[in-house]
Computed example of a mutant assay.
Amino acid sequence: MSASTCAESWTPAKDLHTLTDLIDAGTVTPVLDSTYPLGQVPDAIRHLKSGLPAGKIAITILGSTT
C-alpha cells in the first residue's frame, strides 16, 4: 500500500472506532487521575499544569450520571 493510499483511507472516525473496540475488549484501560466539579475548573487546570496527574482529569457537570 502506498503512502498516498494509506493517507486517503485514514479517517479520525476509524481511529475512534478502533480505540473503542480496544477499550471494550479490555486491551486498553483509560486511567482517570481525578474529577472536579464544573465550579472547580481553575483548580483542575492548576492540577493539570502542575505536571502531577497520573491520568486524565475529568470535569463533572451537575446532574451528570457518568
Score class of each variant (00 low, 15 high):
residue 39 G to Y: 02
residue 32 L to M: 10
residue 55 G to I: 12
residue 47 H to R: 14
residue 47 H to E: 12
residue 50 S to D: 06
residue 46 R to V: 12
residue 32 L to A: 08
residue 55 G to S: 09
residue 61 I to F: 14
residue 59 I to W: 02
residue 40 Q to R: 11
residue 52 L to T: 13
residue 48 L to E: 12
residue 50 S to L: 06
residue 58 A to F: 13
residue 61 I to D: 00
residue 49 K to P: 00
residue 34 S to I: 06
residue 44 A to S: 10
residue 34 S to W: 02
residue 38 L to M: 09
residue 39 G to I: 02
residue 56 K to V: 11
residue 51 G to T: 07
residue 53 P to H: 01
residue 50 S to A: 06
residue 40 Q to V: 02
residue 50 S to E: 04
residue 52 L to F: 09
residue 43 D to V: 06
residue 43 D to S: 12
residue 46 R to W: 08
residue 49 K to S: 01
residue 55 G to E: 12
residue 57 I to W: 02
residue 59 I to H: 00
residue 41 V to H: 03
residue 44 A to H: 06
residue 46 R to S: 14
residue 58 A to I: 09
residue 32 L to Q: 03
residue 54 A to V: 14
residue 53 P to A: 08
residue 41 V to S: 07
residue 54 A to R: 15
residue 33 D to K: 01
residue 42 P to W: 07
residue 47 H to C: 07
residue 37 P to M: 12
residue 41 V to P: 04
residue 58 A to P: 01
residue 59 I to S: 01
residue 47 H to Y: 09
residue 44 A to Q: 07
residue 41 V to L: 13
residue 40 Q to T: 06
residue 37 P to A: 13
residue 37 P to F: 10
residue 46 R to M: 11
residue 51 G to C: 09
residue 43 D to A: 15
residue 43 D to L: 13
residue 55 G to P: 06
residue 57 I to T: 10
residue 49 K to Y: 00
residue 43 D to K: 13
residue 57 I to L: 15
residue 52 L to Y: 08
residue 58 A to H: 08
residue 49 K to D: 02
residue 50 S to M: 05
residue 57 I to A: 03
residue 56 K to S: 11
residue 46 R to L: 13
residue 33 D to P: 04
residue 38 L to E: 01
residue 46 R to E: 15
residue 34 S to K: 08
